[in-house]
């Protein structure tokens, strides 16, 4: 467990450093980024350099960043002139709500589809649908859902973040491609598990098909699915950026997009470090899930 935390910290450090280096190498001057659209005089420039300690060597600035990050201080946004934690914290809730509900919806949808579409025709239909969902860009799915359910039928609000109703379409949009991939992995896992001898034994006990599927095969199929949890997070976060734009929702996606285009380095760095943190957390959870699912992996 200690080793796992250690590895996690190394990943966090590597992600922060890589982002730092990438932003350092990006074209454009930090002072320009901080000035933004404000007044630009030599006096202001020198004040900014003093205030942000930009005259110090890059290595010292980097170490200073690390030192402060270690203490939970992620710096101040160049653009908004507010602490980064405040900027991100305000946008965190809507994004997490969206990602979480989309993730849960995707997983539930995949489980239901994989277990219920066992008959040849249902399976063919479902497979085709999954392929379409996986290969369609999420923003297109979003636009189609919007035009059908919001513009035409008027069931859900078009944009904004007003309670549960506004969450439905973005969550569904984000969940569908996830469900597509997960269903395929689950179905493949179930197929393989059903070929195993223990399934014959289970059937020979008089178990019904549903019980064989749910009690025996599904658990075996979960193993490869859990592996995808890291990938799932990437999809959800990357997808959220686009979906939040399509549906006009506030959130981390909007903040990140803005920070990158305006070279707001502290915000970008904070988003990267935060993503890496969630990623490490989820993968640790996945490792624990393996142990719960498969007793063979537990050390005696």
């Amino acid at each position: 467990m200690l080793r796992r935390i250690g590895t996690g910290l190394v990943v966090l450090w590597a992600a922060a450093t890589a982002a730092y280096l990438a932003l350092l190498a990006a074209p454009g001057d930090t002072v320009d980024a901080i000035i933004g659209d404000g007044a630009d005089t030599p006096l202001i420039r020198s004040q900014i350099i003093q205030e942000w300690h930009l005259d110090r060597p890059a290595v010292v600035q980097y170490l200073d960043f690390l030192w402060r990050a270690l203490h939970g201080d992620l710096g101040r946004s160049y653009l908004l002139q507010r602490p980064v934690s405040e900027v991100i914290g305000g946008q965190l809730a809507p994004t997490l709500t969206l990602a979480f509900s989309a993730g849960v919806l995707g997983i539930v949808l995949a489980l239901v589809l994989a277990v219920t579409t066992r008959r040849p025709w249902a399976r063919r239909a479902s497979s085709t649908l999954e392929l379409v969902l996986v290969s369609t860009p999420p923003f297109l799915i979003g636009i189609i859902l919007l035009s059908v359910f919001s513009f035409r039928l008027g069931l859900f609000p078009v944009s904004g973040d007003q309670g549960v109703a506004a969450l439905v379409l973005p969550a569904v949009t984000l969940a569908l491609p996830v469900a597509g991939v997960l269903t395929q992995v689950l179905r493949d896992g179930i197929d393989r598990a059903l070929d195993e001898p223990f399934v014959v034994t289970a059937r020979a006990r008089g178990l019904g098909e549903r019980a064989v599927l749910v009690r025996h095969a599904l658990r075996h199929a979960l193993l490869p699915t859990v592996t995808l949890i890291g990938w799932l997070f990437g999809i959800l976060l990357g997808g959220a950026v686009i979906i939040e734009t399509v549906f006009g929702r506030p959130g981390l996606g909007q903040v990140t997009l803005q920070a990158v285009t305006s070279e707001d380095m502290p915000v970008v760095l904070a988003v990267v470090v935060f993503s890496a943190f969630v990623y490490v957390l989820l993968n640790t959870l996945a490792d624990l899930a393996y142990l719960i699912i498969d007793p063979r992996l537990r050390r005696s």
């Binding site: 195993e196 223990f198 014959v200 034994t201 025996h216 658990r219 498969d294 063979r296």
Partner: peptide
């Protein structure tokens, strides 16, 4: 080993 469900 394979005729009993290894996860149960």
């Amino acid at each position: 080993l394979v005729s009993l469900d290894p996860l149960r």
